[in-house]
Amino acid sequence: MSRAILEVEALDAWYGAARILTDLSFELRSGEVLALLGRNGAGKTTTLRAVVGLVARRRGRIRIADREVAGLPPYRVARLGIGFVPEDRRIFSGLTVQENLEVGRQPPRAGVPVWSPERLFGLFPALAGLRHRPAGRISGGEQQMLAIARTLMGNPAVLLLDEPAEGLAPRVVDHLAETLRGLKGEGLALLLSEQNLAFAGVVADRVCILEQGRVLHHGTMAALLADPTPAHDHLAL
């Protein structure tokens, strides 16, 4: 088995004086999808933001391909191959679709897929016809695809997705799941924050269930689907 591309060890994080994460550890290999499941406020988003370096106060070790990144500013973390797609998408609404993609562009990286706008328009055909449209004037589903495509322009080795299926129409969700499985097939590591077990069940290989900033359950998705007791105990199902 290959070495982990992302290792998180004993991660603590705070917002102001409030402790959000406690002693969180997990690891992720290339071509693998890990889902962080938990209720609202369990610490899923904070985990992703802490990995990217967007949480000011954190402690613990975060390694990307054996390189310690815990103290680095977000732009350095991103350049080491961590791509982050936030829950609220945060596309640049004043820029066109094409310009949004250009903003995400980073040099090619050895060992991971290299993306170009043309390739991404192939992956998300809906965006191809919108490339000169201001991104503030496309639909929510299109914005979600754009947010993912924009992050892929950085040629990440690890993709962090914060509740990507939230608020999308069922048909769009299906397409998204298929796309994410495709990315996994290309060797990307995916870290997914989800409240929706159905969506995570289709995409993820392994799961961490979080509650109050701690890992309560760690296992394979197959096992969880076979015996969903932990999910019933800790998720609002």
Partner: peptide, 24 residues
């Protein structure tokens, strides 16, 4: 230009720009 586009992006949302690898 790419530089100008990045400046506009960072103007709109500096945090997201940083998460995309832009040195603000």
């Amino acid at each position: 230009t790419g530089w100008g586009t990045r400046v506009r992006a960072a103007t709109e949302d500096p945090e997201m720009a940083a998460a995309l690898g832009i040195d603000q």
